[in-house]
């Protein structure tokens, strides 16, 4: 570096150099980055194990520089429980989408949370199944048209979208639950802060922690990246309010 100049930004070393395969405009990339930045700032490389189940983020098995377990669809919290119980010194995370966590994996997430399993879940909620091609998720908003709700989601047939953070915060087990968003630099910074708090909860052994991050899916929403960000702000964030839903003492 030239003398007298100060480095104010560098890429996190916790992400591999591999070309990401996510669609243009998808916020998985930015979530990966803030996640890794926090891990790096907290110097957790030597302890970290991330569990990645099934969805678009399955591709992330190649993106993180730290130890990784690929898990069956919805089962990441159970797999993470096994990793953590076998070796509690591990710093254990799951990285799950909304189809994975809120549909097929409801039993696993509810019970891991209820046990106060000392793990951290990064829950990326974009209200749709991405990897399989845009099917309705339990989190899909009312009226949204998807591959499997071509006339729009209807409560009488499909039920209402599940608010996972609110639901899990009713349990005694969780230490920290927050919902953040990726729609703006401000909210991305907020996401990073929430992840840091969630990690502190685990490091202090306070119990289960989760950050639900509202995200987009330009491809399956059938819109431009810019429009998809606007949709998060106009629709998603209205149904899924941002904020901290559970913060126990000590974080």
């Amino acid at each position: 570096m030239t003398e007298g100049m100060k480095q104010i930004f560098k890429n996190t070393t916790y992400l591999t150099d591999m070309q990401r395969s996510y669609c243009p405009g998808c916020t998985h990339g930015v979530i990966h980055r803030v996640l890794c930045e926090v891990l790096e700032e907290m110097n957790l490389m030597e302890k970290s194990v991330i569990v990645i189940p099934v969805g678009c983020s399955t591709l992330a098995v190649d993106y993180f520089e730290f130890d990784t377990v690929q898990a069956p669809h919805g089962r990441a919290p159970a797999v993470a429980t096994g990793v953590k119980r076998a070796a509690p010194e591990n710093f254990v995370m799951t990285y799950q989408g909304d189809g994975d966590l809120a549909s097929i994996g409801t039993a696993e997430i509810v019970h891991a949370a209820n046990r106060g399993e000392n793990i951290t879940t990064i829950f990326v909620n974009n209200g749709i199944y991405g990897m399989t091609g845009g099917q309705m998720a339990p989190t899909t908003l009312m009226g949204w048209k998807t591959e499997t709700s071509p006339y729009g989601r209807e409560a009488s047939r499909d039920g209402n979208p599940i608010r996972v953070s609110e639901m899990l915060s009713q349990l005694n087990g969780p230490a920290y639950i927050a919902r953040t968003s990726t729609d703006s630099p401000k909210n991305i910074i907020g996401t990073k802060k929430a992840i840091r708090k969630a990690f502190q909860a685990q490091l202090k052994g306070l119990g289960f922690s989760m950050v639900e991050i509202l995200s987009n899916c330009p491809t399956n929403w059938g819109m431009s990246a810019v429009d998809s960000i606007k949709r998060i702000q106009d629709e998603t964030m209205k149904y899924y309010p941002l904020g901290e839903y559970k913060v126990v003492e000590g974080i």
């Binding site: 159970a78 096994g82 990793v83 119980r85 076998a86 696993e108």
Partner: peptide
């Protein structure tokens, strides 16, 4: 040692998956 009653057999086998992955 650790004994944990899982919420289902589905979860139990995945807990094995994690613990075995951790080398135990």
């Amino acid at each position: 040692g650790t004994f944990l009653q899982a919420e289902s057999e589905v979860s139990a086998i995945n807990m094995l998956y994690g613990a075995a992955g951790a080398g135990h």
